[in-house]
Structures are given as structure tokens and as C-alpha cells.
Simulated assay, not measured.
Amino acid sequence: MKNLFLYIAVLLLSVSCSSTDEKAIEKQEPADVSSVTLTEAQIKNAGIETGPVQSQNLNSVLKVNGVVDVPPQNIVSVSFPLGGYLKNTTLLPGMHVNRGQVIGIIEDQGLVQLQQDYLMALARLRFLQQEYERQKELSEEQVSAAKTFQQVQADHASQKVLVKGLGEKLRLINVNPASLSENNISRSVPIYSPINGFVSKVNVNIGKFVNATDVLFELINPDDIHAALTVFEKDMAKIKVDQLVKVSFVDEPDKEYDCEVILVTRNVDANRSGIIHCHFKTRPKNLLPGMFLNASIHLENVPSLTVPEEAVVRYGNQQYIVQATGKNAFQLVNVETGIRENDRVAVSANNSELSGMSVVTKNAYAVLGKMKNTAEE
């Protein structure tokens, strides 16, 4: 029995000591102090000065990336509307072509048949034209029945439609119906370049049969080639048409080309960014679609709330300004920084109204140090 009482006493003493130790540890953990009050002597000795958050316009440079781009209307896919076999082409990707230049030759028996059908339809139209005029004259003199004239009139009109349709099919393959005769029927027809530009893709080889829907060549008109820059959503409002942009390429990082903003997209993608289109004032040589580039967008007169750069202090992973809340009283305000110019920096805060706020503009780290020392004590 005596041993039982002794065991209970030892157990209670252990629990008591454990509780005392835990309380001691809790007392040792410093509180996160974000405000402090200083004396006049401390403010004077630390050289602390205060001033308001000011509204002013800043100029800055926004660094972005992008690619060389061509608008859809400057990319031409060349196909052959009737299909056939590719007889000849000399194109290679990167070659320059002129408008009206022969870039390929297609041959097929269907081309011969089309020309034959047109000439036969044209010959019958000439016959029906003469018959129409003859029957019209007879009908007016009431020599023949009106029904006969009406039938000839309908046949003549139908044949005119047939000849017109076949003629338009010939124009689709660059054959002029007016110059076609039985003496120049050809089994092959040329394909002409519709633009001045460069060859981007060659999708066929000699001897391959191509359908009407197949793209044979892809051509690019470089006249409107431009820089497409990716800008994050938070910076989109800073971009305006006609702003100056400096562009450099990976192979020439030290050489910059002047551009100007011509279009700002009005939507953002899944990555919370948008595209800014810029025109080259002087187009670089050997400019190719898809080339990667770096750019600096010059921002002018951006309205901002600013403080001196030394008014912003960093503690942990956060940035703060020190607000003067009363007589010799100060507290931390979490902020994000932006444009920097002439030793001033733009600041913004989610939960605080910064405009006109009185903050420590000199030796803000002295106030921060006092706060954290107070917390440790």
C-alpha cells in the first residue's frame, strides 16, 4: 500500500513538471508583432523620416517574349481544284516566288475531257444560235408552229448555261476559254503563284496524284510579317497602340529593332495572358515566321502610387511599407511593388488604401528591426 501511494506521487510530480515545461516553451515563442511605438529620442537617433504616398506618372520598360508571326490573310495554301498528277515543280521551302510565276504543272485525262466538252458545247451553241434565229423568223411570219420555236429557244438557253459553266471550270485551272481551240487542247496545265513571297511548305512530289482538297504548296507574303508578343493579364492595361517596342533575336541579342504596337487583343487565354501585335519599322533580313524574340515595351505616363525605394522593406518572403499611424506609432502594411524610376517605386496593396498614407520614407529598416526585437523580448 505504501508503494502504491509512492508511485502515484511520482506520477503527479512528472505531469506537473511536464506542464510547467510546456508553458515555459509557449512563453518563449515570440509573437508576430507588426506595430510598435517609439520615443522621440529613438526616432531622432535612428534618423527616421516620414512622408505621404504620392500619385505620379512613371515611365518604365516591360520585358516580354514572343514570336515572329504572319496574319492568316498573308498565308496562301495552293491547291488544284480538279485533281490530277503533278508533272513538274522546282519549288523548295524558302525559295522566293513572284506573282504569276509557274510553280507546278498538273496533267490528267480529265483535263483533256473538260476542254473537249467545252469545245463541243460551244459548237452546238453556235448551231442552236443559228437555229434560234431561223425559227424566230419563221414564227414571226407564222410559217412554223409556235411550239417549235419555243423548243429551240429553250435548247438555246440551256446550251448557253452549259457553255458558261464549262468556261468557268476552265478558268479555275487557268485556261482561257476564249483562246481554246481544237488545235491547242492540252493534257497538262500550269499552276501559277498568286502572290509575291516565299515558299513555306511543299507537300507533294513529282508523279503524285493530288485531289482537289489537297494542299500542294504553302506560300507566305512577308509584307505584313510582325512580332506577336505575349503579355500577362496584369500588364495588358498598360499597353497602348503606337507605343515603342524594342525587339531582339536569339542569334543577335545585342542588336535591337524598333517596332510599334498596332493591335492589342481584347481577350486572355488559359494562361492568363494576351497577344500584342507589333509592326517592324525597319524589317530585319531573313525574318521567318515562328522565330523566337525578346522585346521591351516602353511604357509612358503610367499612373501610379509611389514611395521612395528605401521606404520598401523586406521581411521573410514579403514586402512592406511602414505606416505612421499616430504620434510615434508605426505598423507594417503588406504591398506589391511595380514600376521603378528615379529612386521611386510603384506600390499596391489588396486590403489598404494607400493614397495619401503617411509612411516612413527614410530608415524604415530601423522601425522594422525595433518591431522584431520587441517580438523576441
Score class of each variant (00 low, 15 high):
79 S>I: 13
349 A>W: 08
87 K>Y: 08
265 T>A: 14
334 N>Y: 13
241 V>P: 09
308 P>V: 03
95 M>Q: 15
86 L>V: 15
68 V>I: 15
75 I>P: 01
272 R>Y: 14
140 E>M: 09
283 R>S: 11
318 Q>E: 15
277 H>W: 03
202 V>K: 02
208 K>T: 15
248 S>W: 11
67 V>F: 07
304 S>R: 01
207 G>I: 07
334 N>W: 08
244 L>S: 02
76 V>M: 12
54 Q>I: 15
8 I>S: 04
338 G>N: 00
282 T>R: 14
131 E>T: 11
92 L>A: 06
4 L>W: 14
229 L>N: 01
135 Q>H: 09
88 N>H: 08
200 S>K: 11
192 Y>L: 15
217 F>V: 02
36 V>G: 02
56 Q>W: 08
366 A>L: 11
205 N>H: 13
318 Q>Y: 12
119 L>Q: 00
153 Q>K: 10
119 L>Y: 07
124 R>P: 08
3 N>C: 09
129 Q>M: 11
344 R>L: 09
155 D>T: 07
377 E>Y: 08
154 A>R: 06
192 Y>E: 01
323 Q>N: 11
344 R>G: 04
159 Q>I: 07
21 D>Q: 11
130 Q>D: 13
102 V>D: 05
122 L>D: 05
162 L>E: 12
333 V>A: 03
245 V>Q: 02
190 P>R: 00
124 R>H: 14
79 S>F: 14
234 K>H: 12
284 P>L: 06
192 Y>S: 01
185 I>Y: 03
93 P>K: 00
136 K>Y: 12
114 L>Y: 01
312 V>F: 07
102 V>M: 03
125 L>R: 04
28 Q>L: 14
11 L>D: 03
159 Q>P: 06
377 E>Q: 04
239 I>G: 02
75 I>A: 02
52 P>Q: 05
347 V>S: 01
376 E>D: 06
135 Q>G: 04
238 K>A: 09
126 R>Y: 11
356 G>H: 08
35 S>M: 07
46 A>N: 05
5 F>L: 15
34 S>A: 12
366 A>P: 01
377 E>K: 04
202 V>S: 10
162 L>Y: 05
280 F>W: 10
308 P>Q: 00
209 F>E: 10
349 A>F: 08
71 P>F: 11
223 D>S: 07
143 V>D: 07
271 N>L: 14
226 H>V: 07
291 M>R: 00
201 K>I: 13
275 I>N: 00
119 L>I: 09
296 S>Q: 13
121 A>L: 05
89 T>G: 04
178 A>D: 15
196 N>A: 07
120 M>E: 14
285 K>A: 10
108 D>Y: 06
146 A>S: 13
37 T>I: 12
70 V>H: 02
347 V>L: 02
321 I>P: 00
320 Y>L: 13
84 G>T: 05
214 D>C: 04
78 V>P: 01
90 T>P: 05
220 I>W: 08
149 F>Q: 05
284 P>T: 04
271 N>W: 09
347 V>I: 15
14 S>V: 15
54 Q>S: 15
63 K>Y: 14
4 L>V: 14
19 S>Q: 12
44 K>L: 13
283 R>N: 13
329 A>I: 11
96 H>G: 05
318 Q>L: 15
200 S>W: 10
168 E>P: 02
198 F>Q: 05
366 A>R: 02
317 N>Q: 15
278 C>W: 10
254 D>I: 12
90 T>N: 13
